[in-house]
Amino acid sequence: MTESIADQLNQASKGLLFGSETDAPFEVVSWPTQEELTQTKLLELTGHPPDAPVEMRTVDDFFAIATAEEDWHDEEERETVKRFQNLVSVLKQNLSNIQVYRVGTTDIDAYILGLTPGGGLAGLSTKLVET
């Protein structure tokens, strides 16, 4: 992964917390793999057990609530929405074939991953809690 993609993802996600029952920060992740990303390969790369449940979502579905501006949002909330919109834009500008993988059921590890121009995997990870 080129430094600029990591830098752009770090900068775009810095200070943002993904809202669920816990608010978690984002971490930049990358793997130099040239293999097609299967659910089995994802679990291997991320150190999850091979039988962990994996659910896939599109990047737009995953960020739908975070990127939707609402009439009742105050100025700070509107600013946060703009930052999430920018984050999605940075992901789409730098990565192709972006997919979101949700690993687990209650304590969920989410990976927003795509292909870099050099052919590796890169993106962001965060944690969600859904009970």
Rank of each mutant, 00 (worst) to 15 (best):
E69Q: 11
A110D: 07
D74Y: 07
T33P: 05
D109T: 15
K82C: 12
G19I: 14
V90M: 03
V129A: 08
E76W: 12
G118S: 13
E3L: 15
V81D: 00
G47V: 05
N86R: 06
G47I: 06
K14S: 15
E76I: 15
G104C: 03
D23F: 15
T116G: 01
L37R: 02
H48M: 10
A122W: 06
T40K: 04
T40D: 06
D23H: 14
F18C: 01
L115V: 13
D109L: 15
M56A: 11
T22Y: 03
G120D: 06
N10Y: 11
V100T: 05
G120T: 06
A64T: 11
D109H: 12
D107H: 11
S20L: 14
F18Q: 00
E35I: 10
P25V: 14
T80I: 15
Q8F: 11
L128C: 05
Q34K: 13
S13G: 08
G123A: 04
Y101A: 09
L45R: 01
A64F: 15
N10F: 14
R78H: 12
D7L: 10
K127E: 11
A110Y: 02
W31M: 03
Q93C: 04
E75R: 04
G118I: 06
G47R: 00
G19E: 14
M1Y: 10
T105F: 15
T33F: 13
D51H: 07
E76R: 11
I108D: 06
T131N: 06
V100Q: 01
L16C: 10
T126A: 09
G114W: 10
L45T: 05
H73P: 03
L16T: 09
T106A: 13
L124S: 01
W31V: 05
G120H: 02
